[in-house]
């Protein structure tokens, strides 16, 4: 189908489904996609342009919702379930191949594809070898179709590990890390991350309509309770 010149904003939500996510955290994570659907349903300008994909990861990574229009009437959102340990490397590798094939397909359909945004939610440290996941991340972010990568850490996620995932971390439009404050309820923190994601998505869509491109992050002063934003400069 010829979609000459139609602008698209791709988003990927990547969710940790290692065993530690079991319980209220996973319930919160399962509510993210319906919240996004509701937000899109209320914004017809944005919903024409947004494509969303859902990937979960544990020992392996799986595409749970392939990049699509979330308002497709026949779409059924999957329920995430926990399944093992925490391989960041698996998530980054799958993400890279997904983005490359999705963007190539969309461009072949003559869409004008803007840079994808990845929201990466994890509650712990990676259990795969440091060198392995770091290499997978470098491959992802050095690709021509590298995404804007926004890590979101809750519970036992390591602030320094998560901080190293901010991409781009330099240049005119650096991304940021969102971390749960110590002692805050991790399930509520995940819900707060979803709020940040949605407000960023709305702002990015508005910015596209007003002639700019790029992922817009919400103002630091407007963050929900229990979440702290770290900028790339906060890590040396």
């Amino acid at each position: 189908m010829e979609q000459t010149g139609a602008k698209l904003l791709p988003f990927y939500l990547v969710v940790d489904v290692s065993y530690s996510m079991e319980g209220p955290k996973l319930e919160s994570a399962n509510r993210i996609m319906p919240q996004i659907v509701d937000a899109l349903a209320q914004n017809p300008i944005l919903s024409d342009k947004v494509r969303f994909g859902l990937i979960d990861f544990s020992d392996d990574a799986q595409v749970r919702v392939p990049l699509c229009d979330l308002l497709e009437p026949n779409l059924v959102l999957p329920a995430l379930t926990v399944r093992g340990s925490t391989s960041y490397g698996a998530a980054f590798s799958l993400l890279r191949s997904e983005i490359e094939s999705n963007v190539a397909q969309l461009k072949a359909d003559q869409y004008v594809v803007h840079r994808p945004t990845v929201w990466f939610v994890s509650d712990g440290s990676p259990t795969d070898a440091d060198s392995y996941w770091r290499q997978a991340f470098a491959d992802l972010t050095s690709s021509r179709m590298y995404p804007n990568f926004i890590p979101c850490g809750v519970d036992d996620a390591d602030v320094n590990v998560m901080g190293s995932l901010i991409h781009p971390s330099t240049g005119p439009k650096p991304m940021a890390l969102y971390m749960m404050d110590a002692g805050f309820d991790p399930a509520k923190a995940i819900t707060a991350m979803a709020e940040i994601l949605i407000s960023s998505m709305l702002a990015s869509g508005y910015s596209l309509a007003s002639g700019q491109s790029g992922t817009i992050l919400p103002d630091k002063s407007n963050l929900p309770a229990g979440i702290t934003q770290y900028d790339p400069d906060d890590f040396v």
Partner: peptide, 10 residues
């Protein structure tokens, strides 16, 4: 111009 593209489409 954007929806028209190279003008070979719909």
């Amino acid at each position: 111009g954007d929806p028209l593209g190279d003008a070979t489409g719909p």
